[in-house]
Design a protein around this nucleic acid. Sequence first.
RNA 1: CGGGGAGUAGCGCAGCCUGGUAGCGCAUCUGGUUUGGGACCAGAGGGUCGAAGGUUCAAAUCCUUUCUCCCCGACCA
Length: 425
Amino acid sequence: MRRSHLFLKTRKEISKEEVSRNAQLLTRGSYVNQVMAGVYSYLPLGLRVLTKIEQIVREEMNAIGSQEVLMPALHPREIWDVTGRWDKVDVLFKLKGAGDRDLALGPTHEEVVTPLASTVINSYRDLPQAVYHIQTKFRNEARAKSGLLRGREFRMKDLYSFHTTQEDLDTFYDRVMAAYMKIYRRIGLGERTLITYASGGVFSKYSHEFQTLTDSGEDVVYAIPGTTEVLGVQERFAINSEIIDDQEALRGILPNYQPGDEQKLVQHKTIEVGNIFKLGTRFSSACGLTFADKDGKPQHPIMGCYGIGPSRMMGTIAEILSDEKGLIWPEEVAPYKVNLLNLKASDATTTQAADALYDTLQRAGVEVLYDDRDVSAGEKFADADLLGCPWQAVVGPKGAEKGVVEWANRRTGAKQELPVGQWPW
RNA sequence: CGGGGAGUAGCGCAGCCUGGUAGCGCAUCUGGUUUGGGACCAGAGGGUCGAAGGUUCAAAUCCUUUCUCCCCGACCA
């Protein structure tokens, strides 16, 4: 993509009112644009990042055998009455449809997926099943804040699984846990993300959250020393502060627990980037979802639900993986792998060399953003640093004559000159 | 929802206290000089001062109401 054609306008300044780092950087870089508190448009660069994150989520969900569907954002009141949650979920957006009909914008999809599952599940032979979708969710937060971290409208992948036995759910639940950690590693947050024991909200007594370490987070967790194996991989665990006084929970989590042990754990601020629950039969019974067991008797499937927020993950990456100059995207989620800079667009030789490199990179299948504008070199460097693509390929008058390209790594700052046609990776 | 701060040009801000022709920077447009770390000179366009009401000869400025945004707290399937 040529920078001169790209739909964006980067900015040097941002309101001093906006203190959220992710909002500052993503707005200055023209990745997103705020429409109202907690609601954003995604511009071409932002959409590319979001789409890449969602694609990684999609791949890992498919890899554990779950299947993608797409459920609606607009819900009739009736399905929320069935589960008794029309008046219970205080963040539920309610609106009136034609004929004064009560409608809601979906904050989650148990009420949709459970009846949907009943069209497919009749017998134990139809189980287990797992379906997910990646979609825009709506929650009427009393206070949206922190840029993409806490929105009223946001992207979410929610997966729902249906099982004949608790053991089958437990097995699948662990696979989802492992898949989630794989996602965090791929998007560059793996090192900082802890699997966290948490309360289960209204669904279950306990759940697991995925908490990423950052001082701008709004949660507090206590890190458990050492690691625990999850399907062959050593993972770090933590305990959410909301259950740190729950002795029963602590006995179940910490081996040889003695009262007071929890005070030795180290406290961290974190942002919640995922949450998985064992639902039991809460929704299958409320919605009348049954299957015939081997004796022909009706049973309610045991359910699990598993959420992860791509837009929040994007905000978290921007929040954490950045420096004073701008964003630093991990390779798998970067809008473009290479930001090619033509330092002197008014010079025919330089432009010819830069155009040729752009062409070569594209033909090699490398995603490249080509800054072909006739503006000062300093502006291009500053802009490239702000946008944060992993590699900067610099073509200037000197290099063009010698037939070399200067490659700079955005994260490390390391620079090297390479002959045209060679890549640094 | 409670407390605090803020709304003035596309963006970032000053002006308000002490009422009297609405300013600066960035961005944009024109011309010229520049070109390896957000260049420079000259010129130009762009404003219902968040909204409504009130006080006054006169309101961006004072008073009342209201909306929105940001922060802290509460809340957070």
